[in-house]
């Protein structure tokens, strides 16, 4: 629904009022931020009676002049991206397998697959990582990759299934009538269309996957957060803790916002009306925009996890 329908086009009086409220709200937010910045910047006396300079003091940021620090941060970024890339490829493969199993004609394939899917989607990713870590003793890297791949594979499987179900029936019938086997029909006719239809949602899910690589921190993998905040602040001293955390936050935001933007771009490019089919995918939150007034806006909201 376009927003302007809910209220009249403002006249001069309402415009003035809205501008005043806008300014007041803006000032309040800026004041809040300023308070935060000043509080952070104030000098503090630690328990030991030593006066620490404020957080914006140059002495707490000087390590960023050192190229070695940036190289270390780069290694962290690479570790995170590498885990995300490997897990994403595996997740798509697993998702394709799941979607085929879930739409199979044979009952003995379909029902067990549904149960397994339900099981994986209902569990925290973290628990899966811990499971792989302890049961298969793989080391934290593969524990993280496996947990992310299986969990997101289950979700991508559901997305693809919804895409296949949402295709017009004639597609399958046409495939069968020209003599393709049912399996060939699925591979050559139905699946490519479903995949293209659902691509924006799949990319959005991959952004979630990238975000979730931070969970591997908990099972001990040295990704961005551990590499920068734990290791570097151990090395250079605790006074850099906050600065390093702040940098990690900014790096994550930059990567994720770029990817989200790409997902939105792909959605606009393909003009896919994936939202309608996504509405049938349980567990893909926020995609259920039921009507299609704003296709660019739908289907791209991320799952919380």
């Amino acid at each position: 629904m376009s927003q302007s329908v809910l209220y009249d086009a403002p006249g001069p009086k309402a415009r003035r009022r809205s501008r005043i409220i806008s300014i007041v709200a803006g000032v309040l937010v800026i004041a809040g931020l300023a308070w935060l910045i000043i509080t952070l910047g104030a000098e503090r006396v630690t328990a030991g009676g030593v006066t620490q300079p404020g957080l914006w003091d140059a002495s707490r940021w000087d390590i960023f002049l050192d190229l070695a620090v940036w190289r270390a941060i780069g290694r962290g970024v690479l570790a995170t991206l590498q885990m995300a890339a490997v897990a994403a490829v595996l997740a798509i493969v697993i998702g394709i397998l799941f979607s085929f199993g879930r739409t199979a004609k044979a009952r003995w394939i379909r029902i067990p697959t549904a149960v397994v899917l339900e099981f994986f989607r209902g569990m925290p990713v973290l628990l899966m990582m811990l499971f792989v870590l302890l049961v298969f003793s793989t080391g934290s890297y593969w524990a993280g990759v496996a947990g992310l791949a299986v969990y997101n594979g289950a979700i991508i499987g559901e997305i693809l299934r919804a895409g296949i179900v949402a295709l017009p029936k004639g597609q399958r019938e046409a495939g069968l009538s020209i003599g393709l086997t049912p399996i060939a029909t699925r591979f050559l006719i139905e699946f490519p269309q479903a995949f293209r239809q659902m691509l924006p949602i799949i990319i959005a899910q991959l952004v979630v996957l990238l975000k979730d690589t931070a969970l591997a921190y908990i099972v001990g993998y040295t990704e961005l957060l551990r590499q920068v905040v734990n290791r570097l602040s151990n090395f250079y001293g605790n006074e850099y803790f906050f600065s390093l955390f702040f940098v990690v936050l900014l790096i994550y935001l930059a990567i994720n916002l770029t990817l989200s933007w790409i997902a939105r771009f792909v959605a606009r490019k393909t003009g896919s009306h994936a939202g309608a089919a996504a509405a049938k995918v349980p567990g893909v939150e926020g995609t259920q925009a039921i009507t299609m007034q704003r296709p660019a806006d739908t289907g791209l909201d991320q799952t919380p996890r």
Binding site: L6, I23, G26, K211
Partner: peptide
């Protein structure tokens, strides 16, 4: 209807949603 409210809420949403838990 107030533009700055919309902006504040949008920034909040985007920033928090793109930060790992």
């Amino acid at each position: 209807p107030i533009a700055s409210f919309r902006t504040i809420a949008t920034i909040y949403t985007e920033v928090v949603r793109n930060t790992p838990l």
